[in-house]
Amino acid sequence: MINQAGSLQLGDSKYTFVATSDSVEEGEMIEVTVGKETLVVARVHGSVHAVDGICSHAYSELVDGELEDHCLYCPLHFACFDIRDGSVVEGPADEPLSVYSVIELDGFIWVKG
């Protein structure tokens, strides 16, 4: 059920519309806001992933970093995260990024939250 505020209710979960499918190209990422959180939404091998948009180490917007396959590199200190599960691949970060559930349906991308 889609309501007018751009959110989708699936069972107990609320999903927020963040982008149209064509705005997230293969190997690219965009920055979106869900509630108070800044997220990056990226497409890798066709699948869309959403993780925290601010590095878990210092304050840096990850959308300004680099995406190489599943590796998301922070632009400030080059910490590397796996965009699929938010895990730290390489420091200096030691905290993983939060991962957000994504639904891509009929050309729209929805993120849980």
Partner: peptide
Amino acid sequence: HCPNIHPELSRTTPPN
């Protein structure tokens, strides 16, 4: 120095 050493301050009032 804010983005580098103040993640809490920067998340609340982004220095850029």
